[in-house]
Computed example of a mutant assay.
Amino acid sequence: MDNLEQRLAQQAHAEKPAGEPTAETAEVVTQTIEQIKRTLLDPHAISQKYDIKSRQTVEAEISEVRTRAATLGEGIAGKTETLGQKEQRAMELDALKAERVLVLEQRLENIAARLKKLFRIKDKSVAEIQTEIGSIETEMEEFTTQALQLRREIERLAQEQSELPDPKKMLEAYYAKMETMPLLNEEKREMLRPEVLAELSTEEYIALWRRLNPHFLSHVTRQGFRDHNAMIYHSAGLQEFHDGLTSILRDQSKKKIERST
């Protein structure tokens, strides 16, 4: 019985039409078409195959921009922290000065101090307080000057940081160039086969068109009312409304655009 089943299976396999694709063959064809579509349409794949040198240059430029942006960010953060410390110290000195001025005023209002002033006798306590206030004012002036310099440096760094190109946009611009890189004649013959074109969506057709010749677009269908005719043998559809293009665009599953007559 087992031998009979084997013979029947072999016979069925032998009778199978030679041109009929198997599931394995169909899968291989699908994979091959997807690979071709990726080669034709994927800007990453295009750059890896044709533009390694420029790709490396762009990567180096992006890396440099990111490094500079990080350095500027660290500089701004560090100087901002230092500025905060100096402003805090200036506030403390201002409060200390106000305190010492109050002490000085109270001392000057003291009866003993008035008498010394009247007889032009130097008050040691008053002199010490005045000297201390002078030192505080000098230190405050130094901190104010330093804070102003820090603010200017922070503004300069922030301005430079804002002028750095956006790495994401740099990468997008590079890959946008890859989307229009012309196909070689050998590639056209190898990859622009009917079975490949039949699998392209409308968006993929447009993307492929940009790699061929985006400045040329032939007449493929009609859209709108045809109200005139320039050739006697090309008058089909005259005085009629045609909906060829929008119907194709509505049907996203349509694979080929047939030539209109």
Score class of each variant (00 low, 15 high):
N3V: 09
E5I: 07
R7W: 05
A9Y: 05
Q10S: 05
E15A: 08
E15L: 09
G19Y: 09
T22Y: 03
E24M: 09
A26R: 13
E27M: 15
E27G: 12
K37M: 03
K37R: 05
T39M: 14
T39D: 13
K49E: 04
R55P: 02
V65S: 07
R66S: 15
A70R: 11
G75K: 00
E81A: 13
T82E: 00
T82V: 06
A90T: 10
D94T: 13
L102G: 15
V103H: 11
Q106N: 13
R107A: 05
I111S: 13
A112K: 14
R114A: 12
R114W: 08
L118Y: 14
R120A: 11
I121N: 03
I121W: 03
K122R: 05
V126D: 02
V126T: 07
G134M: 12
E137W: 14
E139G: 05
F143Y: 08
T144D: 03
R151Y: 03
E155G: 02
E160K: 03
Q161G: 00
Q161W: 02
P165Y: 01
D166Q: 02
M170Q: 07
M170S: 02
M181E: 09
E187C: 05
L197P: 01
L197T: 03
A198D: 12
L200K: 01
L208V: 00
W209V: 03
R211P: 01
N213V: 04
P214M: 06
F216S: 09
V220Q: 00
F225N: 10
R226K: 04
H228P: 04
A230F: 13
A230V: 08
M231E: 08
I232R: 14
H234C: 15
R250I: 11
K255C: 12
K255S: 15
I257E: 01
E258I: 09
